[in-house]
Simulated assay, not measured.
Amino acid sequence: MSANIHKRVTSQDVAREAGVARSTVSYVLNRTPHQSIPDSTRKRVFEAAERLEYTPSSAARTLRRGRSDVVLCLLPPWPLGSAAGALLAELTTSFSERGLSLVTHIEGDGIQDPGKVWQEIAPAAVLTYHPVPPNTERAMRSAGVRSVVVLFSPEDGPTGGLIRPDERIGRMQAQHLIAAGHGRIGYAYPDRRALVDFAGPRLKGVETMCSEAGLLPPEVCTVPLEAQSAAAAIKHWQYLPEPVTAVCAYNDEVAQALIAGARLSRVDVPRELAIIGADDIPTAALTTPPLTTIRIDHVTEARRIVETVTAILAGKKPPAAWDTAELFTTIIRQSA
């Protein structure tokens, strides 16, 4: 009994089909400049490649160009919701438009070590959410990684980082509530420890705004994505000596849990308790009442990341520091 094994189509097969030299196929398909190849010959090569369903070898491209076309994104084991998914989708599209492929690797127990991943795929660049130890970065660069960029590093972090201060989100949340006349603010913290990298700065932003306004620090409650627990947090806020009248939620999902808890407790939102979220996920506008939130511009976010990486790969100076205020917009609906 035999099996049909399909041999990979090579550039030599395309050259034979088109009746040209293999070097001509390479020049045409790679659009090599300054080559005097007749249009009729170019057409024959493209048609032959299409008939044979020829796909260039990524390994061959890497050898020819001296680098791969892969950008490796190392993600901590965060729960990937709508916001993270939106950013990854925009990054994938933006890199693709520049001839680069984004590969995402989520770190965690039982998952292949990130060191083995970048060694095996030899990426042109590595994106990471946490600073890379100096010895690891040296090993990456020795292996051919030309760009190591730390995403959303703290403001006092490494010079190679891109800063997206989540603290600004907390400041904008509190600013909106204070401007609406609320003098006692709560903060709904997520119950997932993995989110501390985002939740900590957002809470700090709320604390800073309360301090600047001369208010008490925000009363913090951990709120799971469950109505009963959210109702218990609301009860706690209501029975303080100075009751909380408005809450900054870590994100829209936590805010929606609070709205469900308020409904369970027969607390009117926003008349008795105003709630503001963050991320502006697709269901935020469908909540009852529709959720006031902070929108993040993932298109601009992705564009700046890609501009930084591609500039470094091209041997150019990365774009100057940018005003991250352009990333965030307060979307006013009916919950606050």
Score class of each variant (00 low, 15 high):
137 E>G: 02
326 E>Y: 09
283 T>W: 02
60 A>E: 01
329 T>P: 01
281 I>H: 01
265 S>V: 07
129 Y>N: 07
21 A>S: 15
114 P>Y: 15
266 R>L: 10
281 I>E: 01
191 D>R: 09
330 T>G: 03
318 P>A: 09
83 A>T: 14
188 A>E: 06
100 L>A: 04
13 D>E: 10
142 S>V: 07
100 L>W: 07
97 E>T: 02
134 P>I: 05
179 A>G: 12
58 S>D: 06
326 E>L: 07
291 L>F: 12
37 I>D: 09
51 R>Q: 15
35 Q>T: 02
99 G>T: 08
208 T>L: 14
199 A>Y: 09
333 R>I: 06
171 R>G: 04
10 T>H: 06
303 R>L: 05
204 K>E: 14
200 G>K: 04
206 V>A: 10
169 I>W: 08
35 Q>G: 01
331 I>E: 07
132 V>F: 12
114 P>K: 04
271 R>H: 12
305 I>S: 06
202 R>N: 08
170 G>Q: 13
17 E>L: 13
168 R>Y: 09
135 N>L: 08
126 V>F: 05
295 R>T: 06
226 E>T: 01
7 K>F: 05
212 E>I: 08
329 T>I: 03
166 D>Y: 13
102 L>Y: 09
232 A>Y: 05
2 S>Q: 09
189 Y>L: 04
49 A>L: 00
46 F>P: 04
296 I>E: 01
1 M>T: 09
196 V>G: 00
102 L>T: 04
131 P>G: 01
111 I>T: 14
111 I>P: 01
49 A>T: 01
273 L>P: 07
217 P>L: 12
167 E>D: 05
53 E>H: 13
282 P>A: 01
305 I>Y: 09
287 T>C: 14
250 Y>K: 10
109 D>M: 04
297 D>R: 10
34 H>W: 13
213 A>V: 04
55 T>L: 11
310 T>H: 11
306 V>N: 03
87 L>W: 09
10 T>Q: 12
227 A>L: 00
67 R>C: 04
185 I>W: 14
335 S>Q: 02
319 P>H: 14
247 V>F: 13
43 K>V: 11
